[in-house]
Amino acid sequence: MSKPNPRRARPLSFYFLAAILSAFLLFLYAPMACVYILSFQGPTGGMSFPMQGWSTHWFQVLFSGDGQGVGDIGNAFRRSIRLAFVVAILTMAISLSAGMAYRRKFRGSNFVFYSAITSMVLPGIFVGFGIALMFNLLGWRTNWFTSGIGAQLTWTLPFGLLIMFIVLGRFNPSYEEAATDLGASARQRFTQVIVPIILPGIIGIAMAGLTSSYEETARTSLNIGTGNTMPMEVTGLLTAASTPVLFAIGTITTLFSFTLVIVSLIVMSRLAKRRQMRTAA
């Protein structure tokens, strides 16, 4: 970024916009900060300030699972994670394959592309309802392995395809041409040139699939069959429980999602760096 003259005085609009951004950040972080602080509420404290002392009481309630409106968090978590891993891997494989198809012109490319856009922008409840209705009419039972995974893929695949467009749009085809000139077969070009270069993007798709599957409810809730997923369980708790145990759940799930995101960012930047070093060498 070129800096014209760092000592130039800031215009008035700078301070105005800086104030807007600060207010927005406060608006963004204040509610979440309340959750984290209140999760350490004392055993006699309630769901709002002031704090009645500090304790880890509500975390103990959460992990001891002795009733008190904590429900079935452990099982819901396992269900969600299992679903998220399957969906992430499927999203990665199907998007990669479809992305490769879009490197050529083919009939029907618009059909698939606009199906993806439609699937992405449709109200989730509508897609969920449609799938449940179809299963109902066919006399099949909804089940996490069939309708559940299918419903979630309608949400993750469009993003996977769009990420593939970004990734392949930045892919420099001269590497591939060089490989072809050296006599590489189509398979060698794919496994030894294209995939290693776009690997950070592919992992990005898997991570996006993992996190969005873990968070999705609108499409999933009608199609998961028996048992709740994590967000459904948490939503249920929100209406049932009225103790700071909710905030303890909030702190724990946030820690978990952030760990997930940070780990994936580290993996992706590591891969990108390694690739850069190799290209430079």
Partner: peptide, 14 residues
């Protein structure tokens, strides 16, 4: 990246 339901309940103390 914070779960949706948690972000909803976070408004109660405010």
């Amino acid at each position: 990246w914070t779960s949706g339901p948690i972000r909803m309940v976070s408004w109660v103390p405010l």
